[in-house]
């Protein structure tokens, strides 16, 4: 699996974030929400069947997190660090390449 595209961002946030209070509650690190791993909220997880995928990107387009990105070959990659398991991807997938299964962890 390809590396999470947010990895560099997490490292950046950890590097730059300091406890220093900024007057006016100014937050100076854009995209710093990535340190918050919302994958822990998940009850159902999307299971991906690459053979069925037609690379229509609907799952990527409709992901509200976004926790789906695309690899070199145009297949979706699910970032389980952030996927909250809403199931929109599975519901919208035209070929049933994504199914929601109960989280086992």
């Amino acid at each position: 699996m390809a590396e999470s595209p947010f990895k560099a961002d997490i490292e950046r946030v950890k590097r730059e974030y300091s406890e220093k209070m900024t007057p006016g509650a100014v937050a100076r690190i854009p995209g710093s929400s990535v340190v918050n791993k919302t994958g822990s909220w998940r009850v159902f997880m999307p299971e991906f069947n690459r053979d069925k995928c037609v690379r229509c990107y609907l799952c990527y387009i409709y992901c509200p997190e976004p926790a789906i990105y695309l690899d070199e070959e145009n297949y979706p990659v699910f970032d389980y660090d952030y996927c909250k398991g809403c199931g929109i991807c599975a519901n919208e997938c035209p070929t049933d390449a994504i199914v929601m299964v109960r989280e086992t962890k």
Partner: peptide, 29 residues
Amino acid sequence: LYTLTDFDNPISVGALATPNDYYEFRYKE
């Protein structure tokens, strides 16, 4: 002190502050 016009280094101003932070913002003021 800050502006909203540094488009390479965007900021957010006035976000929610939890009880852990709000108090210090008031002290600063």
